[in-house]
Amino acid sequence: MTVALQARDLCRDFRGFQATNHVHLDIHEGEIHAVIGPNGAGKTTLFNLLSGFLKPSSGEVHLFGERIDPLPPDAIVRRGLSRSFQISSVFPTLTVRENLLVALQAGTRLPGRFLTPLGAMDAFSARADDLLAQVGLDWARDRPAADLSHGEKRQLEIGLSLAQNPRVLLLDEPTSGMGSEGIARVIALVREVARGRTVVLVEHNMSVVAQLAHRITVLQYGQVLATGTYEEVRRDPRVIEAYLGQEAHP
């Protein structure tokens, strides 16, 4: 299988604290791959390294065979990797549709132009409407993003991540803080957006992981403890001891 995203011997040191410690990771093209582990295991640090928001102390990151860790985040996005964040990052005073329009023009030359006709945004209208429908927010297109529920903002954030048409999408805690109805919507949405692309998600909810992930990587103390299918991981004694506990035996 083609390796879409690869970490090789990836380390990140924060003044003596090893947040990631010689991490090796192969994400196959077309799979949904979950990264799990207890708090402080290094999951978000790993996402920041993969997406260019942090530079590794040592090691490398490759996207479809190209080394990307020396690149800034915007250059990594242009090469086909996009991400969402654990904390909501929408523009609250803009409408839902305007949020998507801003995201769509971000990858063009428009943001660097001092004077741009308002009509230039019309070129993105059809794509914005498509994204609204894809993430299930066409009904809220003209509402301020601040009016959305927590779960709906997460849906919008996925839409913002999709605006650059990524080949690899990183989702950081996509169901965090949601009730069962919101979780069900996001599970369906992730399955939809995973068609034709690779998805990597950090997720604490093991029910979500079980329903979505083809493979799982477990982190502990910044190191890879295990990688495998849900059934393989949930029965691994090291994983049970480190993280899953009784949750491994529903």
Rank of each mutant, 00 (worst) to 15 (best):
V200D: 10
K153C: 08
L71F: 01
L63R: 00
R234N: 09
I27P: 01
P250T: 14
A103D: 07
P144E: 10
L50G: 03
G107M: 05
P250D: 08
V239L: 03
T198C: 04
A140Q: 13
T229D: 10
V218E: 01
R191L: 13
D129I: 04
R185L: 12
T93S: 14
V200H: 04
R113M: 09
E192K: 11
Q105L: 06
L71S: 02
L50P: 04
V209Y: 02
M121K: 06
L169Y: 00
F47S: 04
L189Y: 03
H28C: 13
G228V: 06
V202K: 00
I183R: 15
T198H: 01
L160C: 11
N39I: 09
T116C: 14
Y221G: 11
L115M: 03
K43E: 00
A194T: 09
S58E: 12
L156M: 09
A242L: 10
W139E: 15
Q211W: 00
A145C: 03
T93R: 13
Q6C: 11
K153L: 03
L101N: 01
E192Q: 12
L81D: 00
V96P: 06
R15G: 14
L189N: 02
A133D: 15
G16H: 11
I240N: 01
F14V: 10
A145H: 08
R234E: 06
V186D: 09
T44G: 03
S125Q: 06
H249C: 04
S149L: 00
A242V: 13
R109W: 14
D130R: 15
T229R: 09
Q211E: 14
A146D: 00
A128K: 11
P38G: 10
Q18T: 13
A123T: 07
H22L: 12
P250E: 10
I158A: 06
Q164G: 14
V35I: 15
D26A: 13
V218P: 01
I216L: 05
G16L: 08
I87Q: 09
Q223N: 09
A145F: 05
H22I: 12
V208A: 07
T229H: 12
V3S: 07
A41C: 02
V199G: 03
N165D: 15
K43S: 08
M206P: 06
S176P: 02
P111L: 05
E98P: 06
R79Q: 03
P56G: 07
T108E: 14
Y243H: 07
L118P: 13
R12A: 14
V233R: 03
Q6L: 12
R83W: 00
N165L: 05
L63H: 01
K55Y: 10
P92G: 04
A213G: 04
L25K: 11
G30D: 03
V224C: 02
P166L: 07
E192N: 13
V61C: 01
G59M: 06
S88G: 13
A103C: 00
D122K: 01
A106N: 06
K55N: 14
E181T: 15
N99I: 08
T116R: 15
A226F: 10
R167I: 08
V186R: 12
V224Q: 02
L162R: 05
V193C: 12
I76W: 05
H33M: 08
R197H: 01
Q105D: 06
E152M: 14
R143T: 14
V96G: 04
R141I: 07
M121E: 10
A126M: 09
H33Q: 04
V218F: 00
